[in-house]
């Protein structure tokens, strides 16, 4: 077994352990993938929050906003397959035009925030935070917390 096959196999084993019987393995992965992206956003939002509160190094704002932008850019495609489940409400796909508009706007704002951080650092980022972090506006409509 070469190194890649071994890696893929171990990932598959983990996925199999995590899969509830009712959901097909592929669907389970599709849900896990978009949740990995959302969890990344969660850790990045928390890290940025710590920086703003002075609890983590200010200069790290550049990398964290870049990570936020990269994760945001991958988010819409992750929801494209119409696989209900996880914490997604059916409205994600029933109102796809609105959902994708919200996600695209978030992704564009995150990309702008990353540019702002690179050019002006933490002080330039602060006033743009509230307008960028539209997480709750989407979750209120499209996420059902379990």
């Amino acid at each position: 077994m070469n190194r890649l096959t071994r890696f893929v196999a171990s990932v598959a084993v983990v996925a199999a352990i995590a899969a509830p019987a009712a959901v097909r393995a592929d669907d389970q992965d599709t849900i896990a993938y978009r949740e990995d992206i959302m969890k990344t956003l969660g850790d990045q939002a928390a890290s940025i929050g710590m920086i703003i509160q002075g609890k983590a190094p200010a200069e790290n704002i550049v990398a964290h906003t870049q990570i936020l932008a990269l994760a945001a850019a991958s988010a819409l495609d992750a929801f494209e397959p119409k696989v209900a489940g996880g914490e997604s409400k059916p409205e994600v796909w029933a109102q796809w035009a609105d959902f994708s508009k919200k996600m695209n706007e978030f992704s564009m704002a995150a990309a702008d925030l990353a540019k702002t951080a690179k050019a002006g650092g933490l002080e330039a980022v602060k006033p743009k935070m509230q307008a960028t972090m539209t997480c709750k506006g989407c979750h209120d409509v499209y996420r059902q917390k379990k």
């Binding site: 893929v8 990932v11 992965d29 896990a32 990995d36 992206i37 969890k39 990045q44």
Partner: peptide, 28 residues
């Protein structure tokens, strides 16, 4: 704070390598 912060970094690694794994397994 120091511990929380380094754990946010590590958890991001976890979720992103999870995402990579799903691509490598051909589902995504």
């Amino acid at each position: 704070d120091v511990i929380d912060y380094r754990q946010h970094l590590m958890n991001t690694l976890d979720h992103q390598s999870g995402a990579l794994g799903m691509i490598l397994s051909g589902v995504i």
